[in-house]
Structures are given as structure tokens and as C-alpha cells.
Amino acid sequence: MDLAGVFVFGLSGGTLAVRHRLDLFGVLVLSLAAALAGGVFRDLLIGAVPPASLQDDRYLLAALASGFAAFFFHPQINRLGKPVMVLDAAGLGLFAVAGCGKALAFGVGPLPAALLASLTACGGGAMRDLLVAEVPRVLREEIYALAALLGAAIVIAGQALKLPDLPVAVTAVLAVFILRVVSVLRGWSAPRAPGS
């Protein structure tokens, strides 16, 4: 699930880079940032060092492959309709579930595990957005971090109820993806400060 999230988030970073007319190096940098930053932050915080993406070449290869795919096949990816949002929603779900699962496996309690799941899911996207001088989606009014927290809550509940891991993980990823996509399509947003 982690590698699938790396590839999907890498595609979102690469697609955004192409939209900003960055060169091949820029596309690969955005793909790597989007794909790996959240997991690196999580691993450093739970003491899983060096981070998984620096221990296992498959992470870097998946992120680079997604960058090249975005660079060469961006017209096909853009046919998806809102490609960055769709890919971002898929990556958000995959990373929230993988991040929560890894945090729980390292003995972190449920609430910190949910926060680490959100950091895993949102960290790469925030880094990607900052590199192209956009306000990160996680800080905007959109339902973003809340969707990641929903996925984490499902994983935590599934573990507490001793349910099988795979169906729980699939349910959590789908819940995050659906909430994120529907919130964008319907214009749902997190509350803003009164009078702001």
C-alpha cells in the first residue's frame, strides 16, 4: 500500500509540475517531494530510521517512475478530468492508511497514530504545493486532513475490533477517497473562523 501511495502521489506531483511548465528535473523533484516527504516525516517521528524510502530502493524507483510517467504521458493523465485532485485523493487514502498502520505497529497510541496518519498523507502534498508557491491544500478550506483522519479512525477501529487488516484497509482508503472527491465536487469545506 505504501508503494502504491508513493506512485500515485508522485503522479500528482509530476502532473502539477507539468502544469507549472517545469522541466524534467523540476517534474522529478516535485514527484519525489509529493511521494516521499510525508513518509519521511512520519518515520523520523516514530524513530524508524533511516526512513523506509532511504532503505528500500523501490520507494525511490516508484517515485521516479511516476515522475517520468507524468512527464511523458501528461496528456493521457489530464483526460481524467481533475487529475491532480483525483490522484491526490487516491494517494491521500493510501498514505493515511499506511501511515496509521505503521504508527500503530511501532506502538504509538491511537490519537498520535491518527495524527501521524494525517502527517503521512498530507506532508508530501504540502511540500509539493509549497515548491510551486501554492498555499498547501491541507491549509485551505477544503476537506483534506479531515479525510485522512477519517481513514485513520477506520484503521484504529478495525484494529481495536480485531477485524481482518485487508478489508479494513480497503474500506479506509475508499472512505478517504470518496470523502475527498465528493467534498471537492460539492464545495464542502472545513469551518472558517467567524467573521473571517
Rank of each mutant, 00 (worst) to 15 (best):
M1A: 10
M1L: 10
D2C: 00
A4I: 11
G5E: 02
F7Y: 06
V8D: 02
V8F: 05
F9Y: 12
L11F: 10
L11N: 09
G13T: 09
T15P: 07
L16P: 11
L16F: 09
V18S: 09
H20P: 11
H20C: 11
L22W: 09
L24Q: 03
F25Y: 10
V27R: 01
V29S: 06
L30R: 05
S31R: 01
L32S: 03
A33M: 15
A33Q: 11
A35N: 05
A37L: 14
G38F: 05
D43F: 02
D43L: 04
I46L: 15
A48E: 10
P51T: 09
D56T: 13
Y59D: 06
L60D: 01
L60P: 05
L60R: 03
L60W: 08
A65T: 08
A65Q: 04
A70N: 03
A70I: 01
F73Y: 13
I77G: 00
K82N: 14
K82H: 12
V84G: 06
V84P: 10
V86C: 01
V86A: 02
A89E: 00
A89H: 00
L92C: 07
G101A: 12
K102E: 05
L104N: 05
L104P: 02
P110A: 15
L111Q: 12
S118V: 15
G124T: 08
G125Y: 05
L130Q: 10
V132Q: 08
A133T: 14
A133N: 15
A133D: 15
L139R: 00
L139A: 08
E141M: 07
I143G: 00
Y144T: 11
A148Q: 04
A152N: 06
A152L: 10
I154L: 06
I156R: 06
A157W: 15
G158F: 05
G158R: 07
A160S: 12
K162F: 09
P167K: 08
A169I: 09
T171E: 07
T171R: 03
T171A: 13
V173Y: 03
A175D: 06
A175Q: 06
A175W: 07
F177D: 00
I178L: 12
L179S: 01
V181P: 01
V181H: 02
S183E: 03
V184N: 02
L185P: 00
L185W: 04
S189R: 08
A193E: 14
P194S: 13
G195M: 13
S196H: 13
